[in-house]
C-alpha cells in the first residue's frame, strides 16, 4: 500500500515538471517531436530508477549524521551530509557514463534510440532533484526509494510526452507571432500544471480541509502537514 501510494504520489501529485519544475531545460529543448521526447523520457526513467536507490544507499551508509557507525564506535559521531551534493552528482555522472557503455555493448539498438540522450541527462535537474528530494523527504527504505525513482521518472515521461504532442499539433494553429515557440510552450505548461494540481485531492480523499482552502492556506497547511509528518517520522525512528 505504501508503495502504491508513493508511486502515484510521485507520478501525479509531486510531478517533477508541473509541481517542482525539475528538468525544465531539457523538457523545453527536446519536446519539439514526440519520437525524441519518448527517447529522452525513457532514458530519464531508466537513470532515475538506478541513481535514486544508489544515492539512497550512499546517504544511509555514508553521508547522514551517524551513518558511519557501521565502521566502528569512533566513527559514529561523523556527519558528512555537507558532501551530499558532490557525492550525488558524482554518482549520477559516473552511472550515466557506465550505463552508456553497458548499453552500447549489449544492446546497440537500444543505444541508438537512447544513447544520444544519456550525456544530456547528467546535467538534467530532474535526476539530481530526484536524489535531493529523496534525501530531504527522508524516504525510509531502499524499496521505497526505488519506487520513488521509477514513479518520478514516469511522471517526467508523461509530462514531456504530453507537451511534445501538443507542440506538434500547435504548429497548425494561429499563435500570435511574439508568442510562437517558447512563449506559448510556457503558457501551455502553466495550464497543464493547473490541470495536474487537481490530482492533489487524490490521496487526501474526503479530507474537507484540503477541499475548502484553495489559496495560500493550502500551501501553508501542506507545509504544516509535511512538518508534522517529518516530526512523526522522527519520533517513529526514535522509538524504533
Amino acid at each position: 500500500m505504501e508503495h502504491i501510494e508513493l508511486f502515484f504520489k510521485s507520478i501525479f501529485i509531486d510531478n517533477m515538471v508541473f509541481a517542482t519544475f525539475l528538468g525544465m531545460c531539457s523538457y523545453l529543448a527536446v519536446s519539439k517531436k514526440v519520437s525524441t521526447a519518448v527517447g529522452l523520457g525513457a532514458a530519464v526513467i531508466f537513470v532515475l530508477a538506478i541513481t535514486v536507490p544508489l544515492n539512497w544507499l550512499l546517504d544511509q551508509y555514508l553521508l547522514q549524521p551517524g551513518a558511519l557507525s557501521w565502521l566502528g564506535e569512533e566513527y559514529a559521531s561523523y556527519d558528512l551530509s555537507f558532501l551530499s551534493f558532490i557525492m550525488f552528482i558524482a554518482t549520477i555522472a559516473t552511472m550515466v557514463q557506465l550505463v552508456e557503455i553497458v548499453v552500447e555493448k549489449f544492446s546497440p539498438s537500444l543505444y541508438n534510440s537512447l544513447g544520444i540522450f544519456l550525456p544530456l541527462i547528467a546535467v538534467n535537474c530532474a535526476i539530481l532533484g530526484g536524489s535531493l528530494f529523496m534525501q530531504s523527504r527522508e524516504i525510509a527504505t531502499l524499496g521505497l526509494a526505488t519506487t520513488y525513482g521509477v514513479g518520478s521518472g514516469i511522471g517526467w515521461f508523461l509530462a514531456i510526452l504530453a507537451i511534445a504532442a501538443i507542440r506538434e499539433k500547435i504548429r497548425y494553429s494561429n499563435v500570435p507571432p511574439a508568442l510562437r515557440g517558447l512563449g506559448i510552450t510556457f503558457i501551455i505548461t502553466g495550464l497543464m500544471a493547473i490541470g495536474f494540481m487537481s490530482f492533489g485531492g487524490m490521496l487526501t480523499g474526503g479530507d474537507d480541509e484540503a477541499k475548502e482552502e484553495v489559496t495560500t492556506e493550502t500551501v501553508k497547511a501542506e507545509k504544516n502537514l509535511e512538518e508534522t509528518k517529518a516530526l512523526a517520522d522522527n519520533t517513529i525512528k526514535v522509538i524504533e
Binding site: 519544475f21 500570435p176 508568442l179 510562437r180 512563449g183 506559448i184 503558457i187 502553466g190 500544471a193
Partner: peptide, 30 residues
C-alpha cells in the same frame, strides 16, 4: 492566492517572453 502556486510562475514567464518579443521583432521564432 493563485499567484503563489506553481503554475502561475510559468504563465508569468510566458508573458515576460511575450512582451519582450513584441518589443523586439528580431527575436521572434518561426
Amino acid at each position: 492566492g493563485f499567484m503563489l502556486l506553481s503554475p502561475m510562475a510559468l504563465i508569468v514567464v510566458g508573458i515576460i517572453i511575450w512582451i519582450q518579443r513584441s518589443r523586439n521583432k528580431a527575436l521572434i521564432e518561426d
